[in-house]
Each structure stands twice: as structure tokens, then as C-alpha cells.
Amino acid sequence: MKHLSDQELMRIVQGGDFSPASEIYDRYSGRIYNFALRFLKSAEAAEDATQEVFVKMIKHANQFQGDAKLSTWLFSITANWCRDYLRKADNKVKESEDVLVTLPAPADQSPDRTLEQRENALRIQRALQELTAEQREAILLSRYQGLSYAEIAQIAGCSEGAVKTRVFRAMETLKKLLSVDARGGDRCLNAMS
């Protein structure tokens, strides 16, 4: 099925044959998962989001317009899921979740370099959490998913102008939080040996 386009795969699904499910999952699950992970800062929630987005894709395959971009449609479902998740009061406590060890330690790097990379990743993740959900959604889709403002507007349910403003504001905030001068802060962990 690898040679089939997204639209062709979806047409098969719409016909009641779900065998392309795994192929579509393999194409998009990484992007969906990472978007949700950055948006929600919870691996568990990101996994649930990924699961439910793809199940929804199968369940509501007929809602997919044949000429639309599948990625846009999937990100729309994902963004909705994430917004719902954040709306639920009980999920807000997860904001306190911290990551002690998240990143791999490549064998070819010194422990210091590894540690630096981990800290950078942590700093970015924390900075992203300082944004409003709307800004975070916009910057994640723009910076990490390479979506156009028109697509983001469709996903976020707003105008392109609003997207432009959100991304700009997000960048302004991130610039302050991530500038070289702002680096430092608590080290999350200490290498022992």
C-alpha cells in the first residue's frame, strides 16, 4: 500500500476496508504524537491522543473530503482532542509533571554534551508551556509540522491573520525565554559518573 496516496488509502477505508489503517498510522503517527506531546507535555496523554485520533479517522472516514489534505484533517482532530483535554480541569494538575530523564544518550557523545542537549530540550519544552494554548498550537504546527498559515487557520478554526498574530506573539515570548542570556536555571539531574 506504500505506493498509494493518502487520498487513495482513505477511499479504501471509506469503502469499509480498514486494511490501510496501519499504513496511514505509520505515515502520520509520529507527527501526531509529537504534536500532542509538545502541546500537552504528557507522554501518556499524547499516546491517548494518537490512539483516539486514528480511531476517529477510521470511524468517521466518510467525513474526510476526498480532495482535502489528510494531514490537515488529522491535525484538526488532534488539535480538538488536545483542546478538550486541556479544558478538563483534572488534567491541569499534570502541568506539574516534570521529566527527570527523557532523552536518549547517544553513544558517540560525551556525557556533558548529552546533558546539555537534554537541558536544552527541557528548556524548550518548558518555554512552550509558557505560551497560551492557541499560541502553542500555532507555533507547533508552523515550526515543527511545516504547515502553512492557511492550514493552521483551518485547524484552529480562525483566520489566517489570527494565526499570523499568534505565531508572532509566540515567537516574541519564546525569544525572551530562550535567548542566550536567559539560559541557566535548575539542572534537572546530575550525572553521577
Binding site: 503517527s29 504524537y33 494518537t50 530540550a121 530562550l178 535567548s179 542566550v180
Partner: peptide, 22 residues
Amino acid sequence: DTWQILGALPAVAVPARARERF
């Protein structure tokens, strides 16, 4: 500079169990 720093956030692999679960 900020745009570049943001790029340092690596992609995380989807847990294998998620695929099976789906």
C-alpha cells in the same frame, strides 16, 4: 536564533505499544 533553538527539540518515537493498541 530562537527559530534555530526550537529546532533542537528532538522528535520522540511513538511507543510501539500505541500502534498495537490502535
